[in-house]
């Protein structure tokens, strides 16, 4: 049943995300901090890629660079042929709007908007009509089992429900890449695995799903694994459970 749904909404030809020699240095009064060093990687469509590593190893920094939320000190990021670094701020926003989706650890829903309005928000930015926005937002929320929660404000939803609203919002403009920074970090294990299942389902549609995580179960289950240590891409230990993930 799930497979049929997946086939229907699959992304036609997903765009490919590539990172080339990324470096990120933060200038602090106490001196420079190198958060990421010489990172290169080709992300695979239709796969879940997990980024793991100890705290402070540069996972969030990497995700921000890949998503065009911050600029690398040197290096380039491509979405197909588009070099993110050469786009204007407005064009990069447009690219995020149309091709990227985001899920954050702390949900980050707009608290003045109801569930369906949150999901419809990116479609509004893209200029969709109210009718289309409403219909599509409702369909997405129903898909994630939130058909009864359409008109709830975020504070009336549980953590797991909020994260599913956030996932629906991330999918609103049918993106190529989904970025998730510790999406289960604030959830109990049951809600967490519902959200993870949904993320795998989304990857199966042909999208690139990139998840920063401390979750061992997820690291094992992911199709691809990136292990960061002190801002560098290193080989993951053969026994994953030895990872000092926290």
């Amino acid at each position: 049943m799930v497979a049929v749904v997946v086939a229907v909404v699959a992304v036609a030809v997903a765009k490919v995300l590539r990172a080339l020699s990324l470096n990120k240095t933060y200038a602090l009064p106490s001196g420079n901090v190198t958060a990421l060093q010489n990172f290169s990687y080709d992300f695979k469509a239709a796969k879940v890629t997990a980024i793991v590593g100890p705290s402070g190893s540069g996972k969030s920094t990497l995700l921000n660079l890949l998503a065009g939320l911050d600029s690398p000190s040197t290096g380039t990021i491509y979405l197909n042929e588009t070099n993110l670094g050469q786009l204007s701020e407005a064009a990069r926003a447009e690219l995020r709007l149309k091709h990227f989706g985001f899920v954050f650890q702390s949900f980050n829903l707009l608290n003045i908007l109801t569930a369906w309005q949150n999901v419809a928000f990116p479609m509004g930015l893209a200029g969709e009509t109210l009718q289309k926005r409403k219909a599509h937002a409702e369909a997405l929320l129903k898909r994630f089992g939130l058909g009864e929660r359409l008109h709830h404000l975020p504070y009336k939803l549980s953590g797991g429900e909020r994260q599913r609203v956030a996932l629906a919002r991330a999918l609103a403009n049918n993106p190529d890449v989904i970025f998730a920074d510790e999406p289960t970090g604030n959830l109990d294990s049951k809600s967490g695995s519902i959200v993870l299942d949904a993320l795998f389902e989304v990857a199966a549609e042909g999208r690139t799903v990139i998840i920063v995580t401390h979750n061992l179960e997820l690291a094992k289950r992911a199709h691809e694994l990136i292990f960061l240590s002190d801002g560098k891409l290193t080989n993951a230990p053969t026994n994953l459970s030895e990872l000092a993930l926290t």
Partner: peptide
């Protein structure tokens, strides 16, 4: 500020 950061991440232009 945080909320605005989220809105920008999602794809709103500075102009918005």
């Amino acid at each position: 500020t945080r909320e605005f950061g989220v809105v920008r991440a999602i794809g709103a232009r500075p102009r918005f």
